[in-house]
Protein backbone atom coordinates (compact mmCIF):
# COMPACT_ATOMS: atom_id res chain seq x y z
CA UNK A 1 0.00 0.00 0.00
CA UNK A 2 1.48 3.33 -1.08
CA UNK A 3 -1.13 5.79 0.13
CA UNK A 4 -3.96 5.28 2.53
CA UNK A 5 -6.58 7.77 3.65
CA UNK A 6 -8.60 6.72 6.66
CA UNK A 7 -11.87 8.42 7.43
CA UNK A 8 -10.58 11.83 6.26
CA UNK A 9 -12.81 14.86 6.72
CA UNK A 10 -12.19 18.48 5.76
CA UNK A 11 -14.65 21.24 6.51
CA UNK A 12 -14.69 24.86 5.42
CA UNK A 13 -17.01 26.53 7.87
CA UNK A 14 -20.33 24.73 7.42
CA UNK A 15 -19.35 23.12 4.14
CA UNK A 16 -18.01 19.60 4.35
CA UNK A 17 -15.73 19.43 1.31
CA UNK A 18 -14.43 15.93 1.99
CA UNK A 19 -16.57 13.71 4.17
CA UNK A 20 -15.23 10.60 5.94
CA UNK A 21 -13.31 9.47 2.91
CA UNK A 22 -11.34 6.25 2.72
CA UNK A 23 -8.98 5.84 -0.19
CA UNK A 24 -6.19 3.46 -1.03
CA UNK A 25 -3.60 3.72 -3.76
CA UNK A 26 -1.37 0.76 -4.58
CA UNK A 27 2.21 1.15 -5.70
CA UNK A 28 2.48 1.75 -9.44
CA UNK A 29 -1.25 1.73 -10.10
CA UNK A 30 -3.24 4.03 -12.38
CA UNK A 31 -6.21 5.39 -10.53
CA UNK A 32 -8.82 7.76 -11.89
CA UNK A 33 -10.84 10.06 -9.69
CA UNK A 34 -13.97 11.40 -11.30
CA UNK A 35 -16.74 13.53 -10.00
CA UNK A 36 -18.71 16.62 -10.96
CA UNK A 37 -17.66 20.13 -10.05
CA UNK A 38 -17.67 20.67 -6.29
CA UNK A 39 -17.47 17.01 -5.41
CA UNK A 40 -14.30 17.54 -3.34
CA UNK A 41 -11.65 16.32 -5.78
CA UNK A 42 -9.35 19.31 -5.55
CA UNK A 43 -9.72 19.45 -1.76
CA UNK A 44 -8.72 15.79 -1.70
CA UNK A 45 -5.56 16.63 -3.65
CA UNK A 46 -4.80 19.52 -1.32
CA UNK A 47 -5.18 17.18 1.64
CA UNK A 48 -2.82 14.62 0.14
CA UNK A 49 -0.20 17.17 -0.86
CA UNK A 50 -0.41 18.96 2.48
CA UNK A 51 -1.90 22.29 1.48
CA UNK A 52 -4.72 21.53 3.91
CA UNK A 53 -4.56 19.54 7.11
CA UNK A 54 -7.62 17.30 7.60
CA UNK A 55 -10.03 18.02 10.46
CA UNK A 56 -10.43 14.32 11.11
CA UNK A 57 -8.83 11.12 9.93
CA UNK A 58 -5.39 9.96 8.97
CA UNK A 59 -3.22 10.02 5.87
CA UNK A 60 -0.59 7.33 5.60
CA UNK A 61 2.11 7.27 2.95
CA UNK A 62 4.31 4.20 2.73
CA UNK A 63 3.37 3.22 6.24
CA UNK A 64 4.28 6.64 7.62
CA UNK A 65 1.66 8.91 9.14
CA UNK A 66 1.88 12.17 7.19
CA UNK A 67 -1.41 13.67 8.37
CA UNK A 68 0.19 16.72 9.97
CA UNK A 69 3.31 17.00 7.83
CA UNK A 70 3.78 20.33 6.00
CA UNK A 71 3.85 20.12 2.18
CA UNK A 72 7.57 20.72 1.88
CA UNK A 73 8.24 17.60 3.92
CA UNK A 74 5.85 15.48 1.88
CA UNK A 75 7.35 16.15 -1.53
CA UNK A 76 10.75 14.62 -0.65
CA UNK A 77 8.97 11.42 0.42
CA UNK A 78 7.82 10.96 -3.15
CA UNK A 79 4.68 13.03 -3.65
CA UNK A 80 4.27 15.29 -6.67
CA UNK A 81 1.34 17.06 -8.21
CA UNK A 82 0.30 19.31 -11.04
CA UNK A 83 -2.21 22.11 -10.68
CA UNK A 84 -5.54 22.52 -12.43
CA UNK A 85 -4.48 25.98 -13.51
CA UNK A 86 -0.74 25.64 -14.19
CA UNK A 87 1.48 27.48 -11.75
CA UNK A 88 4.80 27.96 -13.47
CA UNK A 89 7.57 30.02 -11.88
CA UNK A 90 6.87 32.68 -14.49
CA UNK A 91 10.08 34.63 -14.87
CA UNK A 92 12.29 31.55 -14.65
CA UNK A 93 13.15 29.60 -17.78
CA UNK A 94 11.37 26.37 -18.57
CA UNK A 95 14.57 24.48 -17.83
CA UNK A 96 14.96 26.15 -14.43
CA UNK A 97 11.36 25.36 -13.58
CA UNK A 98 11.89 21.67 -14.17
CA UNK A 99 15.29 21.75 -12.45
CA UNK A 100 13.68 23.17 -9.29
CA UNK A 101 11.48 20.08 -9.24
CA UNK A 102 14.52 17.82 -9.47
CA UNK A 103 16.34 19.75 -6.74
CA UNK A 104 13.70 19.70 -4.04
CA UNK A 105 11.59 16.66 -4.80
CA UNK A 106 12.47 13.08 -3.96
CA UNK A 107 15.25 13.25 -6.57
CA UNK A 108 17.09 15.76 -4.32
CA UNK A 109 19.59 16.54 -7.08
CA UNK A 110 22.41 19.07 -6.95
CA UNK A 111 22.15 22.14 -9.20
CA UNK A 112 24.11 20.81 -12.18
CA UNK A 113 22.59 17.37 -11.99
CA UNK A 114 19.12 18.92 -11.73
CA UNK A 115 19.66 20.99 -14.87
CA UNK A 116 20.69 17.85 -16.76
CA UNK A 117 17.64 16.01 -15.44
CA UNK A 118 15.52 18.94 -16.57
CA UNK A 119 16.78 18.52 -20.15
CA UNK A 120 16.04 14.83 -19.98
CA UNK A 121 12.45 15.28 -18.81
CA UNK A 122 11.81 18.13 -21.22
CA UNK A 123 12.78 15.74 -24.01
CA UNK A 124 10.42 13.12 -22.62
CA UNK A 125 7.42 15.47 -22.63
CA UNK A 126 8.54 16.91 -25.96
CA UNK A 127 9.18 20.58 -25.19
CA UNK A 128 12.98 20.48 -25.06
CA UNK A 129 13.27 23.17 -27.74
CA UNK A 130 11.45 25.61 -25.41
CA UNK A 131 13.88 25.12 -22.53
CA UNK A 132 15.32 28.64 -22.52
CA UNK A 133 11.98 30.39 -22.85
CA UNK A 134 10.48 32.28 -19.93
CA UNK A 135 7.83 30.00 -18.48
CA UNK A 136 5.13 32.67 -18.46
CA UNK A 137 5.39 32.97 -22.24
CA UNK A 138 4.32 29.37 -22.86
CA UNK A 139 0.91 28.46 -24.24
CA UNK A 140 -1.51 26.79 -21.81
CA UNK A 141 -0.75 23.36 -23.29
CA UNK A 142 2.99 23.93 -23.05
CA UNK A 143 2.59 25.07 -19.45
CA UNK A 144 0.78 21.84 -18.62
CA UNK A 145 3.52 19.80 -20.24
CA UNK A 146 6.13 21.78 -18.34
CA UNK A 147 4.32 21.11 -15.06
CA UNK A 148 4.23 17.44 -15.94
CA UNK A 149 7.98 17.46 -16.62
CA UNK A 150 8.55 19.35 -13.37
CA UNK A 151 6.51 16.83 -11.39
CA UNK A 152 8.24 13.87 -13.06
CA UNK A 153 11.67 15.37 -12.40
CA UNK A 154 10.85 15.18 -8.69
CA UNK A 155 11.02 11.38 -9.14
CA UNK A 156 7.75 10.80 -7.29
CA UNK A 157 6.30 7.52 -6.17
CA UNK A 158 2.86 9.04 -6.35
CA UNK A 159 1.93 11.58 -8.98
CA UNK A 160 -1.32 13.53 -8.65
CA UNK A 161 -2.59 14.98 -11.91
CA UNK A 162 -5.22 17.69 -11.54
CA UNK A 163 -7.28 17.98 -14.73
CA UNK A 164 -4.14 17.65 -16.78
CA UNK A 165 -6.07 16.78 -19.91
CA UNK A 166 -8.80 19.41 -19.66
CA UNK A 167 -8.98 21.72 -22.62
CA UNK A 168 -6.76 19.62 -24.86
CA UNK A 169 -7.70 18.26 -28.26
CA UNK A 170 -8.16 14.48 -28.65
CA UNK A 171 -4.85 14.04 -30.46
CA UNK A 172 -2.85 15.68 -27.65
CA UNK A 173 -4.80 13.72 -25.07
CA UNK A 174 -3.84 10.41 -26.68
CA UNK A 175 -0.24 11.51 -26.94
CA UNK A 176 -0.05 12.53 -23.28
CA UNK A 177 -1.82 9.42 -22.02
CA UNK A 178 0.71 7.28 -23.90
CA UNK A 179 3.50 9.33 -22.44
CA UNK A 180 2.27 9.05 -18.87
CA UNK A 181 1.70 5.32 -19.25
CA UNK A 182 5.25 4.89 -20.53
CA UNK A 183 6.93 6.89 -17.76
CA UNK A 184 4.72 5.25 -15.16
CA UNK A 185 5.85 1.80 -16.26
CA UNK A 186 9.51 2.79 -16.51
CA UNK A 187 9.72 4.45 -13.11
CA UNK A 188 6.97 2.55 -11.29
CA UNK A 189 5.00 5.66 -10.36
CA UNK A 190 1.49 5.43 -9.03
CA UNK A 191 -0.55 7.97 -10.97
CA UNK A 192 -3.80 9.41 -9.73
CA UNK A 193 -5.59 11.36 -12.38
CA UNK A 194 -8.54 13.53 -11.60
CA UNK A 195 -11.03 14.48 -14.29
CA UNK A 196 -14.38 16.11 -14.38
CA UNK A 197 -15.68 15.30 -17.84
CA UNK A 198 -13.13 13.48 -19.94
CA UNK A 199 -14.57 10.01 -19.42
CA UNK A 200 -13.19 8.53 -22.61
CA UNK A 201 -9.72 9.65 -21.56
CA UNK A 202 -10.04 8.04 -18.15
CA UNK A 203 -11.12 4.74 -19.72
CA UNK A 204 -7.90 4.69 -21.73
CA UNK A 205 -5.79 5.51 -18.73
CA UNK A 206 -7.10 4.20 -15.44
CA UNK A 207 -7.38 0.60 -14.29
CA UNK A 208 -9.60 1.60 -11.42
CA UNK A 209 -11.74 4.65 -10.72
CA UNK A 210 -13.20 6.29 -7.68
CA UNK A 211 -16.32 8.38 -8.21
CA UNK A 212 -16.76 11.26 -5.80
CA UNK A 213 -19.94 13.09 -5.03
CA UNK A 214 -20.50 15.78 -2.40
CA UNK A 215 -17.26 14.94 -0.63
CA UNK A 216 -18.00 11.24 -0.36
CA UNK A 217 -16.88 8.21 -2.28
CA UNK A 218 -19.90 7.21 -4.34
CA UNK A 219 -18.45 4.16 -6.06
CA UNK A 220 -15.15 2.45 -6.62
CA UNK A 221 -14.05 -0.30 -8.95
CA UNK A 222 -12.86 -1.28 -12.43
CA UNK A 223 -13.14 1.69 -14.78
CA UNK A 224 -15.69 0.65 -17.40
CA UNK A 225 -17.94 -1.08 -14.92
CA UNK A 226 -18.09 1.90 -12.60
CA UNK A 227 -18.58 4.53 -15.27
CA UNK A 228 -21.54 2.62 -16.69
CA UNK A 229 -23.17 2.31 -13.31
CA UNK A 230 -26.60 3.95 -13.22
CA UNK A 231 -25.76 5.92 -10.06
CA UNK A 232 -22.78 7.54 -11.75
CA UNK A 233 -24.84 8.48 -14.75
CA UNK A 234 -27.42 9.99 -12.44
CA UNK A 235 -24.83 12.07 -10.63
CA UNK A 236 -23.63 13.51 -13.89
CA UNK A 237 -27.04 14.08 -15.39
CA UNK A 238 -28.34 15.61 -12.19
CA UNK A 239 -30.69 12.80 -11.20
CA UNK A 240 -31.67 12.01 -7.66
CA UNK A 241 -29.01 10.28 -5.63
CA UNK A 242 -30.03 8.29 -2.63
Amino acid sequence: MLLKLENVTKRFGGLVAVNKLDLEVEEGEALGIVGPNGSGKTTLYNLISGVYIPDEGKIIFEGKDITNLPPHKRAPLGLARTFQIPRPFGSASVRENVAIGAMFGRAHAGVDEALEMADEYLKIVGIYELRNKEAKLLTPLEKKLMELARALAMKPKLLLLDELLAGMNPKDIDKIIDLIKRVKEEENIAVVSMVEHLMHAITKFAERVVVMHQGRKLLEGPTIEVLNHPEVIEVYLGGRVV
Partner: peptide, 26 residues
Protein backbone atom coordinates in the same frame (compact mmCIF):
# COMPACT_ATOMS: atom_id res chain seq x y z
CA UNK B 1 22.02 32.85 -7.09
CA UNK B 2 23.70 29.76 -8.52
CA UNK B 3 23.12 27.44 -5.59
CA UNK B 4 20.08 25.55 -4.36
CA UNK B 5 19.30 28.60 -2.24
CA UNK B 6 19.00 30.74 -5.35
CA UNK B 7 16.68 28.31 -7.10
CA UNK B 8 14.57 27.87 -3.99
CA UNK B 9 14.22 31.64 -3.66
CA UNK B 10 13.40 31.98 -7.34
CA UNK B 11 10.49 29.64 -6.72
CA UNK B 12 9.47 31.55 -3.56
CA UNK B 13 9.53 34.83 -5.46
CA UNK B 14 7.30 33.51 -8.22
CA UNK B 15 4.80 31.36 -6.32
CA UNK B 16 5.36 30.62 -2.67
CA UNK B 17 2.55 28.07 -2.37
CA UNK B 18 3.61 26.11 -5.43
CA UNK B 19 7.17 26.18 -4.07
CA UNK B 20 6.02 24.56 -0.82
CA UNK B 21 4.25 21.76 -2.63
CA UNK B 22 7.43 21.13 -4.60
CA UNK B 23 9.35 20.39 -1.44
CA UNK B 24 10.88 23.78 -0.72
CA UNK B 25 11.08 24.80 2.92
CA UNK B 26 10.23 28.40 2.14
Amino acid sequence: INSRVGYALLAVREDEDAAKVMGINV
